[in-house]
Simulated assay, not measured.
Amino acid sequence: MCRTSMDLVELFFISLGAAIVVYYGVRLLLFSRMLFPKLWFPLSKSFFTSMGEWAVVTGSSEGIGRAYAFMLAKKGMNVVIISRTKEKLDVVAKDIGHTTGQMVKVIVTDFIKENVFSDIEDQLKGLNIGVLVNNVGILPSTIPCQFLEHEELNQTITKVINCNVRTMVKMCKIILPGMEHRGKGLILNISSGVASVPFPMYTLYSASKVFVERFSQSLQAEYKDKGIIIQAVAPFGVSTRMSGYQKISMVTLSPEQFVERSLQYIRAGDKTNGCICHIILSWVLQTIPLKDFMLQGLQEYVKNNFKNHKNKSGGAMIEVIVSRTALETPLSMMQP
């Protein structure tokens, strides 16, 4: 009897060990696909144009938004670029038209303000929109601070919700019906790597990006069977104005590099970090407890870098509309 019990216990642990090996083996196989996106998630040359004639990109006057507009135009799509600065948009429109020969429509709006979407909807009427990139976002303060430390907190809350949350939902409401009617379309909602874990000192920003991810993933579950791809894209280090144009490296990509690589992962699921190095960084954040480290070092680190940036550039905006959501600074702390 004792021998039988020991045999059962031994069999249980052997089975458990085998199950663990199989589980992690499958996960390793799934992860290995991310190393070869062109092999595992191929796209035809006509993939984007097959979705529709036009692409709409918010926050497209610079950075990641501008890179998306250019890349989609290079793939044969006409583009609608939307941001709040007409002068910058006009330059981007001219560059895209000259470089690609595609049509470019400019819509000037400030997504922080109320009641802007009826005008946008009117200007988009009649366009066969196959791709929507919800890129625009706002970082309430370049200096990390606790929630109650934000200046003009009530206004800050409204601005973050209006720009980072409401804009994405409203733009989907405007464009999704046409995609559903045609049975095809692509929506990319730009989140951020900081949404991977609770992120103190950037509470409003990171929480708004968690909403972007959950909204995108739930919407994809609802509309996947209708031929529509909806994906949250959560980058980390990208060299833009917001990150002080940090030096491009294996981890810190240029906007063009990031966009080109992220488009290879469109069929990789309802969320992607856009490139293999950022996928690994996301795993690190979710696996290694960094909360105490970030609380102790994050604020001082960013303050010093912000001070240096001001000295070099002659000043910096406390609140900026960013054409990316890759909050690079905290990840730079983990780079060698």
Rank of each mutant, 00 (worst) to 15 (best):
M1H: 09
R3L: 06
R3V: 11
S5L: 15
S5E: 09
M6P: 00
M6N: 14
M6C: 14
V9K: 14
V9M: 12
E10R: 13
L11S: 13
F13V: 10
S15N: 06
A19P: 02
A19C: 13
I20F: 15
V22M: 00
L28D: 04
L28M: 13
L29R: 12
R33S: 07
W40S: 15
F41W: 15
F41L: 13
S46C: 06
M51S: 01
E53V: 09
W54C: 05
W54Q: 02
I64R: 00
Y68F: 14
M71C: 10
L72H: 04
G76Q: 01
M77Q: 10
M77T: 11
E87I: 00
K88G: 05
V92A: 05
I96E: 01
M103A: 12
V106L: 04
F111L: 13
I112L: 11
K113L: 15
V116K: 12
S118Y: 04
G126D: 02
N135R: 00
I138Q: 03
I138V: 15
H150L: 04
E151F: 11
L153G: 14
N154L: 15
I161C: 09
N162G: 03
N162Y: 02
C163E: 04
R166L: 12
R166Y: 06
K173E: 14
K173D: 14
R182M: 03
G183W: 10
K184Y: 02
N189C: 06
I190P: 05
V197Q: 10
V197G: 09
M201K: 14
Y202S: 15
T203E: 10
T203N: 12
T203M: 12
L204S: 08
Y205W: 11
V212C: 14
F215Q: 05
F215M: 03
S216I: 07
Q217L: 06
L219N: 00
L219I: 00
Y223P: 00
D225A: 12
G227W: 03
G227F: 01
I229E: 01
I230G: 01
F236C: 10
S249D: 08
F258P: 03
G269D: 11
C277P: 14
H278C: 15
S282T: 11
I288A: 12
L290E: 05
D292I: 13
D292C: 13
G297N: 12
L298R: 06
Y301P: 07
N304W: 09
S313F: 10
G314L: 09
M317R: 15
I318L: 09
T325F: 08
